[in-house]
């Protein structure tokens, strides 16, 4: 039953990304633990402040691509040297230059499809997914710093609200989110 306890979120709404960045710097100085930051577009300079490590998607992409390369090249090699050798235009069975275009295409196809699928899986997104939306203005023009306050006392929550207003938040709100 404990798993169904809702997440209690207290968040400050900012009107501009530069104020947001300054507010996050303040929060770091005050050793506050930020749950998440939301914005209508990718804010530059945010990731190092939040201590987000660089995405490893591109490494996954390289691996997917390499699988594509091998699949295409080895398959064509097998077909034309083992399974059903044939001569086309007087060229050898194993005509490497002829295999390059398809090998390239499958490399790109595997890398792209693999990365996009991985992206949605790690993000917990996809067709039919209903994620709880913290505030509908995030996708319009508001920038949000959110704190998870389940374990906070009322007094701490009050202090946090004051902190957020003090750093330029135009509104401070709370919301229950499904855990």
């Amino acid at each position: 039953m404990a798993a169904t306890v809702n997440k209690e979120v207290l968040y400050g709404v900012y009107d501009d990304e530069e104020i947001l960045l300054d507010a996050i710097k303040e929060a770091k100085r005050a050793h506050l633990e930020i749950w998440d930051v939301f914005s209508p577009f990718p804010v530059h300079g945010l990731d190092p402040l939040l201590g987000l490590s660089e995405s490893r998607l591109h490494i996954a992409g390289f691996i997917y691509g390499a699988i594509g390369t091998l699949t295409a090249f080895l398959f064509m090699t097998w077909v034309f040297t083992r399974d059903w050798p044939m001569i086309f235009g007087g060229k050898p069975y194993w005509s490497v230059p002829s295999f390059i275009p398809i090998t390239f295409e499958l490399t790109v196809l595997f890398a792209a499809v693999g990365m996009v699928v991985s992206f949605y899986i790690v993000n917990g997104q996809g067709p039919g997914v209903n994620n709880a939306i913290l505030d509908e203005r995030i996708t319009d023009d508001k920038f949000i710093i959110a704190f998870s306050v389940n374990n906070y006392s009322e007094e701490e929550k009050e202090k946090l609200s004051q902190f957020l207003s003090g750093t330029g938040a135009s509104e401070v709100l709370t919301k229950e989110m499904p855990a």
Partner: peptide, 12 residues
């Protein structure tokens, strides 16, 4: 390089 080589190799 590949475009030039491959076309010449292919058409021969």
């Amino acid at each position: 390089w590949f475009s030039q080589f491959m076309l010449i190799w292919y058409a021969n």
